[in-house]
Design a protein around this nucleic acid. Sequence first.
DNA 1: TTTCATGCAAATGATTTGCAGTGTT
DNA 2: AACACTGCAAATCATTTGCATGAAA
Lengths: 145, 145
Amino acid sequence: MELAGADARIQDQLNERGIRNTVQRRAIVEAAVRRRGRFTANDMVAQLAGRGIGRATVFRTLDLLVEMGVLERLHSDAHHAYTVCSTEHHHHLICVGCDTVEEIVSPATEGLVQAIAQEAGFQPRGHLLEILGLCRACQQRAPAS
Amino acid sequence: MELAGADARIQDQLNERGIRNTVQRRAIVEAAVRRRGRFTANDMVAQLAGRGIGRATVFRTLDLLVEMGVLERLHSDAHHAYTVCSTEHHHHLICVGCDTVEEIVSPATEGLVQAIAQEAGFQPRGHLLEILGLCRACQQRAPAS
DNA sequence: TTTCATGCAAATGATTTGCAGTGTT
DNA sequence: AACACTGCAAATCATTTGCATGAAA
């Protein structure tokens, strides 16, 4: 349901912009949505190499999807990763156990960022908040270490 | 003053760990402290190449300094950057005009992160908050665009 | 058809590693 | 003297680009 929904939403966005609906792009969007968490460009390249989809196409498509706001880049680890996300401003809870990413919208955070910036005489243009930890499922799997 | 202090503090940490105090390491620490802001590994390589310090040494030393908690990696941009920082937990105000980085310690943020995580049943292990924008000086230089 | 997208392979750029020589302790 | 540290060059790894071919509108 949710998956199909996200998938359809993305297809619509592609159509709206007159961007060609190719087999490869469909496969990449589908794979990204199915993952429900973070993944690297290489993960995707490896996953789709079997279907004859080239490295360059994966990278080009991921860039395209980020530009369209369908995917977002994550930064907190040493390597770049991507995750499917909504277009409104939000933050991420990233599970280091299973790489699942949960989106959170937090007005309180927005307010706090403003306050911190103001106090420092800083004019904020954007901010990034990523919380790393264990999701509910992984907490049970691996009890408090 | 502040510069000299940071420099001395770092030298002490190096000594404590029995790590050899070489010309190259001193040069890299000094250069990092002088920058008072973010810089990439390549910036440093370029800056020190003239003094005959090799690429590998710069990378190895930056890694070492991160591991020691003297430097921290920044993530918010596409490329990795480093900045000198204290060892306690803190966040960063990064000026996109001049690359200056200001450290902030914000108990309110810590509390908020806890609250957000708790609400989501998430067990936080760490978090990252980076605020990008214009520092006071750059705001005057380039009026609100 | 016309134009855009793809795959391949080569090009880049960043970072790491192997190794023999060098400097520190 | 012993061993960690360094520079260099080669090796990796991630990402991008050039170009001829193939597919979508």
